[in-house]
Design a protein around this nucleic acid. Sequence first.
DNA 1: CAACATAGTGTTATCGTTAACATTCTAACT
DNA 2: AGTTAGAATGTTAACGATAACACTATGTTG
Lengths: 343, 343
Amino acid sequence: MVTIYDIAKKANVSAMTVSRVINNSDKISKQTREKVEAIIKELNYIPNSSARSLISKKTNILSLMITDIANPFFTSVARGAEDKALQMGYQLLLCNSDENIEKESKYIDMLISTGTDGVLIAPASDLSKKNIHKLTKYKIPFVLIDRYISDLKCDQVLSDNETTTRKLIEHLIELGHKRIAIINGPLDIATSRERHQAFCDTLTLHGLEVNKNWIHQSELFRDSDVTDIVSNLLELPAEKRPTAIFATNNFLGLNTVKALKKHKINIPEDIAVVCYDGVPNYTENEPFLTAAEQPSYNFGYLGAQMLIERIENTCPEVPRKIVLPAELYIRESSNYTIKDLKR
Amino acid sequence: MVTIYDIAKKANVSAMTVSRVINNSDKISKQTREKVEAIIKELNYIPNSSARSLISKKTNILSLMITDIANPFFTSVARGAEDKALQMGYQLLLCNSDENIEKESKYIDMLISTGTDGVLIAPASDLSKKNIHKLTKYKIPFVLIDRYISDLKCDQVLSDNETTTRKLIEHLIELGHKRIAIINGPLDIATSRERHQAFCDTLTLHGLEVNKNWIHQSELFRDSDVTDIVSNLLELPAEKRPTAIFATNNFLGLNTVKALKKHKINIPEDIAVVCYDGVPNYTENEPFLTAAEQPSYNFGYLGAQMLIERIENTCPEVPRKIVLPAELYIRESSNYTIKDLKR
DNA sequence: CAACATAGTGTTATCGTTAACATTCTAACT
DNA sequence: AGTTAGAATGTTAACGATAACACTATGTTG
């Protein structure tokens, strides 16, 4: 390994002078600088980050803690974060928590040990607060993305859950739906709670029934038990059966559709489906699912930007909060007014 | 920050003793060990990786260099790599090269500086050889995934391009197709070349025409110019127009379908489409595209495993090569024998 | 009982870089 | 000429952990 001493020796200067050249310090004669730079190039010198970090306490590594990179929402978040990170001279460490508090905790310990400069985190659940506190203790800046945690003063990039949910539900109401069900994630995730609340509020506002038989939470924000929930809904007597389902994230939406199809339920004629989150248009057919699509790339991009500003102290001290709007795409899965229904 | 000296002081031992406790050295009395461990816990001590790396030259960081995490193939590779990495006590750094040699080169320099323990790399193109040589120079182990580079002696996890391509093409031939086109990625990527070669070989083997009007390369393994290529194919006189198209990766396949639909071409009645790579079944409708699906998760998982074995020197010195088979899923986009065709 | 093995612990130097202070040298001013 | 400012460079110590060696008690052996 080539070190500054090798450079220094060959250039007949001290190591410190080499260090100054590397760090673009100004107090260097043009002559010396050029001599040193030539030798750096010649020997293919690359500075050792460990040694630098040891002194500077900076690693130029950001960490992205998400629940699962395979969720297309987070894939896109990761891409955004990575783009901003690279642009600002940082590298990005990837951590999948799988919505598991212990895994998250173990990861946080590793991150502290590695000495990450900051963490972009979509917490596994409310219980993540304990894990996040460890970051605070070690003075590692972090930015919450997608899921907020109450009583935590920090930078955040969140979705406008209230407005977006209301738009989705009002879209259904306009179509004439009166019995609307929700298939939600676990209520110890802020996102779920907010979407739940907005769902109930919107129904109430429009004088519609909020029936607890139509309110369901899946164990995870994944495919876990959607099939059962859908079966449950379908077992309700005809006049008590929902005519529309609101799924609160992409996986839940897709699995709801799958479950309904398995039961030979026609969408949207028998039951309409709307969904929070989009899914990438990998489908060759026209997109089908009515969805509120989030600017996921920007969750990562802006999150990373805020994080870096926090790390480099180029922003006001007060926590900042960015709320990103989602865009409603009305598609086939809901495109049927209730009066068209055959029932 | 809590250091071993803080622990040592409080425990009335030397720093070295603390270090021994941390590293599970055996020559420590049970009594001392317990005392030190208690204080470590009490003070919430977490070892400083930079300091450790400086001595040990190990960072416990693996790097994953792929072209784009947003490509579902690589998303899944990343997930596999991360799982194995965590399991073995490593963290994973994410790098998107965007098939860009300069970006890749810049990244490699950063990785060398950070001192990554090893790199899992899907090279941007044949020109990546220069970048990879830098890794060799710094004695950083690496494993090639998905795309090989000629004359490079190293561990590899590759797809069985020859067999898989042949299976796809023979599937078309069995259906009665005689005029088959290929929409491929750039030929400076090994994967493209192999699929190209296998495509030609299979046609020849079956006595079918290999017409250069039916052979096309897109500028990138992406959506870049597929629309033009498809238009080109469609402009051929009826008797010279291909009845089937082989797209050599997921993005090319999807864009081929899109382009055909825009021209109101029926798939598979007018033109059948088959595709190398699967796409995640995010679609609520039945999957449509006939595809050879690769075990992408295992590209990452096995790749990381080989890499770690190489790093920890727990494997034979000779380069190892894993060739993973793809599985053929016959679906609607090709499910039409030629004699059914109306033409 | 001397000689020596060994378990347990401490000391010192080192990894590669940089902060802080020290030194040298030139040029400018009184 | 003597003083001084400041530009350019060097020296030393430190960051936190650990390798290599040194030391101190024990106990063990012939």
